[in-house]
């Protein structure tokens, strides 16, 4: 039920939980028991004549003072377990986390970009949090951490240190529109040796495309990993943007600089739609719905996407 912890914060957070929930259960159960006892003991049949009592200042004082002490204890436990989360170490492994509707991507200092977050165990990981469009929130339940990713807020960081290897889920916890529920990815914690080996393997940055590869299939992978199909369906239904189905090579009506015109759905149009989405707006759709993928989708990947789009016509 409660996810097993895998970061250095877990112990403190668990202590706070135990203390607060312990006190809460004690009060909930004992007060409920008292109510039930009163219901039986002072039922009108058993106690037809009530006793007049206006109140008791001593009791009022006691049941102000005791909860006050207890909640201050709760405040303290919550506070001390939270301090280490805010105290970001100077030294650590740095990753930039980017969020957009509705996918995460992680940029490492050596230029590597992944859709899952890979980190070494027992190392302080410092995440810089960026959001392209709206609020998102990076939440790792197993690590007990969460921080909103606010567009425009520079220098928004969080950190953690994993003390177990394994794969954990990262959720988006701040409502961000249509596919908010599907905006999750994995956090993979590796043994340091294994991680550094993975990290040094830069071939993944520019994948060499084999001659006989199915380009359309690779294109489909790009479309999926970049989160395109959250807005552009493959089956002709209109979600947020136009569907990908059966368009390539056909004429399409767009609005450019406020003037409606007809152009051909060609490679140039696709490239421009990815890098400068507001240049041509397909008639029937709104401006400003899509942000440029400049720097996030490479020229090679655009080529693969085009191959994929072509394949949808067949």
């Amino acid at each position: 039920m409660y996810p097993l912890g895998a970061s250095t914060f877990v112990e403190g957070v668990n202590n706070a939980f135990v203390f607060i929930l312990g006190v809460s259960f004690f009060f909930l159960i004992s007060i409920t028991a008292v109510i039930i006892y009163f219901l039986i003991r002072y039922n009108k049949k058993r106690n037809p004549k009530p006793t007049h009592v206006e109140g008791n200042n001593w009791l009022e004082f006691i049941w102000t003072a005791i909860p006050l002490v207890l909640v201050m204890g709760m405040f303290y436990y919550g506070y001390v377990a939270w301090i280490p989360m805010k105290r970001i170490p100077d030294e650590g492994f740095h990753v930039t986390a980017n969020a957009r509707m509705w996918s995460f991507s992680f940029t490492y200092d050596n230029g590597r970009v992944t859709d899952k977050l890979f980190v070494p165990k027992d190392t302080a990981i410092i995440l810089s949090l960026n959001a392209r469009d709206v609020l998102h929130s990076l939440y790792i339940p197993a690590f007990r951490i969460k921080e909103d990713m606010v567009p425009g807020l520079t220098d928004n960081r969080m950190w953690f240190q994993a003390n177990n290897t394994g794969t954990f889920t990262i959720f988006c916890a701040e409502y961000c529109g249509l596919q908010h529920a599907l905006m999750y990815t994995d956090l993979v914690v590796m043994e340091p040796d294994e991680f550094w080996e993975w990290y040094a393997d830069t071939t993944a940055v520019a994948p060499v495309i084999p001659e006989d590869a199915n380009l359309a299939l690779l294109g489909r992978q790009v479309v999926e990993s970049k989160g395109c199909i959250a807005c552009h369906s493959l089956d002709g239904t209109v979600v947020i943007g136009p569907s990908f189905l059966g368009k390539f090579g056909d004429p399409v009506r767009v609005i450019t600089d406020g003037v409606e015109r007809e152009i051909i759905y060609d490679e140039e149009y696709v490239r421009r739609s990815i890098y400068d989405p507001d240049y041509d707006i397909t008639v029937g759709f709104r401006r400003g719905q899509m942000l440029s993928y400049e720097g996030e989708v490479t020229e090679d990947e655009v080529m693969l996407i085009i191959e994929f789009l072509k394949s949808l016509n067949e």
Partner: peptide, 19 residues
């Protein structure tokens, strides 16, 4: 009210916020 206390404490809130 008592679960409100869990949410009022900083460390536990970070885990439970927006859940």
């Amino acid at each position: 009210g008592l679960t409100g206390l869990v949410l009022g404490a900083l460390a536990t809130n970070v885990h439970l916020h927006d859940t």
